[in-house]
C-alpha cells in the first residue's frame, strides 16, 4: 500500500478545517428489509475536512456515504447537508445533490456522450449554465485532471485511470462543496491508482471537503485529517491518522489494521 504514496511533498497551506459544519448526521439508522445496515450513526463533518472511511467488506461504508446524497434512503435519524435537511422532499434532495459530488468505484461515465459532454451535461441542465460557458468550465477541470486532449473521445476509448479522472472532473464541473469517493481506485491497475490519487491530493490541497471510502492507507496517512473505522454498521473508532494507525484502541480496529497492513 505505502509504496503507492505520492512522492511529492503535500502543500498543507490551504488544507484547513473551518468550524462551519458541512454535514451533520445524528442517530441515523438504516435497514435493508430486516437487515440493520447502519446503526446509530453520529458524525459531524466540518468544511475542509478530509475524512477516510475504512472497514471490512460489508461493514456499511458505501451505504453510509450514499445516504449523504440520498442514493440510499435512511429510515431514522437526521442528515443535514450544508444546512439542508434530507427528507423525502425532492427539492431538498436535488439541492443537496447539486452541492455534493460523487465518484464511484466503476466510474459510471455516460458511454453515449463524449468526455466533454459528460462534463457539461449537469451544468447545462441542472445549473442552467450557457453551453459555451459550461464547455469552458469543463475544459478547465479536464486540464486540471490532465486530460484536456481527450475531450472529444468517448469514455470507452479511455483507460480506467483516465476514466476515473474524467469522473472526478465531471463532478467538479458542478462546483460542489463536498466530494464523496466510494473506493475510487479499487477497480484500477496499480500504475493508474497513483494518477487518480494524485488528482485527489490536489483536490485536498485546494481545501475541498472530502469523504473517501478507500483501502489506500498511504493516502489516509498523508491527506486525511480524520480516519473513521466502521464495522457491522457502526462507527467503531475515529481518530487522527497518526493515532489511528499507531495507537488503535478497539480490538476490531487492531485486527483490521493487522490484516490490511501486516502482509
Amino acid at each position: 500500500m505505502s509504496e503507492l504514496m505520492s512522492d511529492r511533498a503535500i502543500d498543507r497551506s490551504k488544507m484547513q478545517v473551518s468550524d462551519q459544519v458541512a454535514i451533520q448526521i445524528s442517530n441515523m439508522n438504516k435497514w435493508y428489509g430486516s437487515f440493520h445496515v447502519l446503526r446509530d450513526i453520529n458524525l459531524t463533518v466540518n468544511e475542509g475536512e478530509r475524512i477516510v472511511i475504512a472497514g471490512p467488506s460489508g461493514s456499511g461504508k458505501s451505504t453510509l456515504i450514499r445516504c449523504i446524497n440520498r442514493l440510499e434512503e435512511h429510515q431514522s435519524g437526521d442528515i443535514v447537508v450544508d444546512g439542508t435537511e434530507l427528507t423525502s422532499d425532492l427539492k431538498n434532495i436535488d439541492k443537496i445533490r447539486s452541492e455534493v459530488g460523487m465518484c464511484f468505484q466503476h466510474f459510471n461515465l455516460f458511454p453515449h456522450l463524449t468526455i466533454l459532454e459528460n462534463c457539461t451535461l449537469a451544468p447545462i441542465w441542472v445549473r442552467k449554465t450557457p453551453k459555451k460557458e459550461a464547455e469552458e468550465i469543463a475544459m478547465h477541470f479536464l486540464e486540471k485532471v490532465k486530460i484536456p486532449d481527450q475531450a472529444l473521445k468517448y469514455p470507452g476509448q479511455l483507460s480506467g485511470g483516465q476514466q476515473q479522472r474524467v469522473a472526478i472532473a465531471r463532478s467538479l464541473c458542478m462546483k460542489p462543496r463536498i466530494m464523496l469517493f466510494d473506493e475510487p481506485t479499487s477497480a484500477l491497475d496499480p500504475e493508474m491508482i497513483k494518477e487518480v490519487l494524485d488528482t485527489m491530493i490536489e483536490l485536498a490541497e485546494e481545501g475541498m471537503t472530502m469523504l473517501c471510502v478507500t483501502h489506500e492507507m498511504g493516502f489516509a496517512r498523508q491527506v486525511a485529517n480524520r480516519v473513521i473505522f466502521m464495522d457491522q454498521g457502526q462507527i467503531v473508532e475515529q481518530n487522527e491518522p497518526e493515532e489511528f494507525f499507531n495507537n488503535p484502541k478497539s480490538d476490531r480496529t487492531k485486527l483490521f489494521l493487522s490484516q490490511i497492513l501486516g502482509h
Binding site: 455534493v100 459510471n108 449537469a122 441542472v126 463532478s171 458542478m174
Partner: peptide
C-alpha cells in the same frame, strides 16, 4: 443498463425526466 448509470445521473442532480431523456 447498469444501475451505475441511474446513480451517476442522480448524483449529478438531474431530475427524473432529465435523467431519462438524456442518460
Amino acid at each position: 443498463l447498469p444501475k451505475g448509470q441511474y446513480e451517476a445521473a442522480d448524483s449529478l442532480g438531474l431530475d427524473y425526466p432529465q435523467a431519462m431523456r438524456l442518460i
